[in-house]
């Protein structure tokens, strides 16, 4: 356990150093969620296009947009890993006696750092747009936990895809093909109960839905989680652990 934590921390620390050294990528990733909130959110709120109960539409989609940006920035992890493989970095990690699970878990944790930056951006934008969000420490703490878990889950998913498709070109295609449906087949920008039945079924199988659900309860003043936090976090955690176990098996095949 001690060794697992030490090795994972070593991997995560390297990613953190790189992230802080070159924050341009993080800044550019922050543009998209801002557009969604400022343009899409405001327009739909203005026309009252989607009924979201007592909660205003802007407040309603703020957690959805956070979850979306967690998904979108984590999904790029696969590309980064393929890139590292092409550079020989993955070879070097894999010949070390470090456990495979530490290598994969360390990567997942480092995806969490990016997620946290996205969360900070969303809170900042919300502040300037006068969207009031919950400020109790335990709510904020819950949001951070959700964002870390979501980032870890989606980055590990992305790693698995990378191990299967193996080349950057193919990943680009598949990445697009997976992220947009995952986003739209979720409760990120509209509630589950206005969806047609088949889509609701799909959405309920989509881990993003549970992240959004938890964030909605934890971020919105007077908001609540439909499934309950216990269910949300249990689904996210179980999915993450399953994906982690698959990724541990597939990661070494990247260098074959």
């Amino acid at each position: 356990m001690d060794r697992f934590l030490r090795e994972s921390a070593a991997i995560a620390q390297v990613e953190l150093i790189k992230l802080l050294r070159d924050p341009t990528e993080m800044v550019s990733r922050a543009v998209q969620p801002v557009l969604w909130l400022v343009v899409f959110g405001q327009v739909l709120a203005h026309v009252h296009g989607i009924y979201t109960g007592d909660v205003g539409y802007l407040a309603f989609i703020t957690p959805g947009i956070l979850a979306q940006s967690v998904l979108f920035s984590a999904i790029f992890y696969g590309i980064a890993v393929i890139w590292e493989r092409d550079l020989g970095v993955v070879h070097k990690l894999l010949v070390s006696p470090a456990r495979r699970i530490s290598l994969v878990f360390g990567k997942a944790v480092s995806a969490g750092f990016r997620g946290l930056v996205q969360a900070a951006v969303i809170y900042l934008v919300a502040f300037f747009m006068h969207i009031t969000l919950r400020q109790e420490p335990q709510a904020i703490f819950g949001v951070l936990a959700g964002v870390l878990l979501g980032s870890a889950l989606f980055s590990t998913f992305s790693l698995i895809i990378a191990c299967i498709v193996k080349t950057r070109e193919r990943f680009m295609g598949i990445g697009q093909l997976l992220t947009m449906p995952m986003f739209f087949a979720s409760n990120a920008i509209y509630p589950l109960d206005i969806m047609p039945g088949w889509l609701r079924v799909v959405a309920q199988l989509n881990p993003l839905t549970y992240l959004v659900d938890a964030l909605r309860g934890l971020m919105i003043v007077g908001g609540k989680s439909v499934h309950g936090y216990g269910v949300d976090f249990a689904v996210l955690l179980t999915t993450f652990v399953l994906l982690l176990l698959i990724a541990v098996r597939l990661y070494p095949t990247l260098v074959e």
Binding site: R6, E7, A9, A10, I11, V14, I17, K18, R21, D22, L87, G88, V89, H91, K92, L93, S96, P97, A98
Partner: peptide
């Protein structure tokens, strides 16, 4: 295969920890 975005020292620290 050394990581260009890290310093030489940081590359070595990573190896030391993994080993």
């Amino acid at each position: 295969s050394a990581d260009g975005a890290l310093t030489g020292y940081e590359n070595l620290v990573l190896s030391a920890k993994l080993y």
